[in-house]
């Protein structure tokens, strides 16, 4: 449904994205994960035909987004990062305008509007001025607009940015419900969100795809117990030395309050170190008070993945 090959976009001399290739099957929900400025929005803007790539090609529903832009756009529903609303319109007139722009006949449009109003739970705000809606509801109107013409492809740029937690949950449910019928591409900088909603995750960092996997596999690859915080009742120096000697341990650093024997143990592999640590500590006759697998933060993931890619390129450090 979506096929991007070596997309590259330069803003002046600055490469926003370089050689980004990916594809999405019909009905798949693909998440773009990356920090701000990593090239997520640029990639989406290319797919939607807002701007052409400097190099590379992309097709949506079989239409090239540059040479056959209008046909490609007919198959896309798009929610830009800033929700594009006309504040002087009511929800209804806004949706009617967007529907007619996309060439919907009035009968089909009424059905479509009823459907998205229900799906996005906007029934009570049908005739409300958009200016009077809260941010969360404006976001829903934005999603409703993208869904209105029942497009094959939905492109949602940060659909849960800046709305309150309950609405975030609701929005995620709406998006999750869309998979199957629509091919969805959404961007986010929240790892949990992407793994919850998406079938496949693309991690973008500084304009490059650094990983592309199913969330479970990615989690296994990244979040495996590579960092364990362990608190022991025992002699400080000796504990530290013992922990260092465990096979696979790369780094041991003291964390937490001064009066406690608490260490953070890191290992390079994704092997679960917890059984070994527990065994060693109890084997020495010390008390194992607490052990906790520390997940990686998004920053850690990027660091790790970019290091991986750099290493793959021949050990060159950034």
């Amino acid at each position: 449904m979506i096929e991007a090959i070596n997309l590259t976009k330069y803003y002046g001399d600055f490469p926003a994205i370089e050689n980004v290739s990916f594809s999405a099957e019909k009905g798949e929900v693909v998440g773009f994960l990356g920090p701000n400025g990593s090239g997520k929005t640029t990639t989406m803007r290319i797919l939607t035909g807002y701007m052409p790539p400097t190099a590379g090609t992309a097709t949506v529903a079989g239409y090239d987004v540059v040479t056959n832009s209008l046909d490609a756009r007919r198959h896309i529903g798009y929610l830009p990062e800033t929700v594009p609303l006309y504040l002087d319109m009511t929800v209804r007139s806004y949706l009617e305008f967007q529907g007619s722009l996309r060439g919907m006949a009035s009968k089909k449009m009424q059905g479509g509007i009823d459907k998205v109003i229900e799906l996005c739970r906007l029934e009570d705000y049908y005739t409300t001025d958009i200016a009077k809606l809260s941010k969360g509801f404006r976001q829903r109107v934005g999603i409703a607009q993208a869904l209105l013409h029942d497009p094959d492809v939905l492109i949602l740029d940060e659909p849960t940015l800046g709305i309150d937690p309950r609405q975030v949950v609701e929005t995620r449910q709406i998006i999750k419900g869309l998979g199957g019928g629509h091919t969805v591409i959404l961007s986010s900088h929240i790892l949990a969100e992407v793994s919850m909603v998406c079938d496949r995750v693309l991690i973008i960092h500084e304009g490059h795809i650094v990983a592309m996997d199913r969330p479970e596999d990615l989690a296994r690859r990244l979040e495996g117990v590579s960092r364990v915080v362990v608190e022991v009742r025992g002699p400080l120096r000796e504990v530290e030395a013992t922990l260092r000697q465990i096979k696979g341990v790369e780094r041991v650093s003291r964390v937490g309050p001064e009066d406690r024997v608490r260490f953070q143990v890191e290992c390079a592999s994704t092997r679960d170190l917890r059984p070994v640590i527990a065994q060693t500590v109890t084997g020495k006759g010390w008390g194992l008070i607490e052990m906790q697998a520390g997940g990686l933060s998004l920053e850690d993931i990027f660091l790790r993945l970019t290091e991986e890619t750099e290493a793959a390129k021949g050990g060159r450090k950034p």
Partner: peptide
């Protein structure tokens, strides 16, 4: 308002 982006990506 950012609506131009939607307008320019409409068919």
């Amino acid at each position: 308002m950012g609506t131009l982006e939607l307008l320019l990506t409409a068919p």
